[in-house]
Design a protein around this nucleic acid. Sequence first.
RNA 1: GGGGGUGUAGCUCAACUGGUUAGAGCGCUGCCCUGUCACGGCAGAGGUUACGGGUUCGAGCCCCGCCACUCCCGCCA
Length: 600
Amino acid sequence: MKRTHHCNELRPAHAGANVILDGWVHSRRDLGGLIFIDLRDREGRTQTVFDPSELPPALFDQASHLRSESVVRVSGTVRIRPEGTRNDKIATGEVEVLVRSLEVLNTAEVLPFSIDDPEVANKVNEELRLQYRYLDLRRPEMARNLRTRSKVAIATRRYLDEQGFLEVETPTLFKSTPEGAREFLVPNRRDPGTFYALPQSPQQFKQILMVSGVERYFQLARCYRDEDLRADRQPEFTQVDIEMSFIEREDIYALVEGLLKRVWKAAMDLDIPAPFKRISFHEAINRWGIDKPDTRFGMELVDFTETFRASAFKVFAGAVASGGVVKAINAKGMAGATQGQIETMTDHAKSLGAKGLAYIKVEGGEWKSPIVKFFTQAEKDALVSGLAIEEGDLVLFAADPWLNACEILGKIRLYCADVLRSQGRLSFDPRRFDFLWVVDFPLLSFDKEMNRWYSSHHPFTAPVAEDIPLLKQDPRQVRGQHYDIVVNGVELGGGSIRIHQPDVQRTIFEDILQIPPDETRLRFGYMLEAFKYGAPPHGGIALGFDRLCAMLCGTSSIRDVIAFPKTAKGTCLMTDSPSPASARQLRDLHLEVKTAPPKA
RNA sequence: GGGGGUGUAGCUCAACUGGUUAGAGCGCUGCCCUGUCACGGCAGAGGUUACGGGUUCGAGCCCCGCCACUCCCGCCA
């Protein structure tokens, strides 16, 4: 006999029904003359009661020895719990199942960590959770994350299907493309010394699909990058990859806004307002010091370049004289910052090339600062009105070239927010999401060390049409048709309108990026070839699916929304991979390992 | 590649300035308990203080090395 209900289904209306439930023993409360066992399955929990007056002694004894997480099937009668014993913490708390029979489908050994108490389980060492991932995934929090991820994937597919997109799979055995992230290589048995590479993204295939006439393509694409990991970076991850033909930037904005509205509704039942705010790259840097600003809090950067142009404080005046800027932020209420915190902020500044970090602590009605003695009253007045300085504030300065100064304060701004959050003095509504498009990125950046230009995004990004004449005259001024979608300071995705005219593409490759024609042919030849035969104007975007899910699940680590993630060193603790290959495998692949393999 | 943090019982943690037999809660085992839901009560078992060296009369604690996990920088077109 199979189960008749799941464990989150029974209600008072079922009273009197004979039911069969399957599940795991979530917890046992043995009162001696009466045993309660909470049975758990994917859907929820139901209390079952073992009453010796209703059961053979052997069965009752068996129940008293049931261990947590053993798998059982019980049959019995649903009844409404006696008055005063209802449990309003669980959905089935008004009823219980009076057990008539018990079948132990599988016993569980004593667990390496307890999974029934969320407060305990949340603190368990992640190492252990990853080693016993199947137990970790049984926890309601993790099961909920898996479910949310599934809902988001399905909502994405439904929405894009409605919008006329085709889901097309692209190869994971791809060609090595030396630009960009380090790749995982796959040796080719059939031709010694040749290799596939796992794709960093399906970028080139999706553009080829536009040439193929697909017009609207999407894929929940697995991508691989052999770079060092972070809480929000795994060596393999998933992108919602999208590409469309005959469109402009506005079409992508509208499409993605519709998609995210659908996804937020499906996962959180939250209606997010669209269209999203749009901010230029320049404004993002200028106001928040970062290209993915968290706009949930203020502390914006304020410019004081003119105030200090002729200042007696030579550090500021000198920076302005050499073409730089003077900017400041007011870290509200942080005058009490410790020496260590100031030092950390100074280190941030120094890591970006600053010589130090000027600051003013506003404490006890006076400005405590090594530099304030150089300031005139007019300069002080400008600071007070520009930064709304009050008692208890901490003002931090950067005097450097514009981009540098902004990035320094941008880092410090985020650090200050972290400090305030950890002190409980800054908090965010978990259902608040500040979406914004960051647009008008520079198409090209200059690498001083290599003395050459490189693509800010990738070499297929189209310049803004009106900027094309500037390509050869003043590359720095050329804006790319690139866009990033940012939520609460997290870069959720980015994309661009692509170049579809071969001559513009050639200009970028050969004149700007200075890639020799034969190398271009070697690396992108098949693409340039394809583009000769009628490439439609097209563009697209890729969203980080794991980050998206993490955000919807309220966690900052994408490991919490990936069923079987890797550790920070790229290993899987459950399967103990990667692991050495056998001599025979290596021989077949024409490979020789030079350093000693790790001990097996 | 670099910097920070962590590692003590199955789990979460404690252990003063280096000083007696390394403790607690939960879990586990046994006994008691008929309305619990973090059930309660009594008793008990359980430790190579990640690992390897060193300093010391004496090391969980100090020093060197090493491993694992984690956060960050670099890196991630």
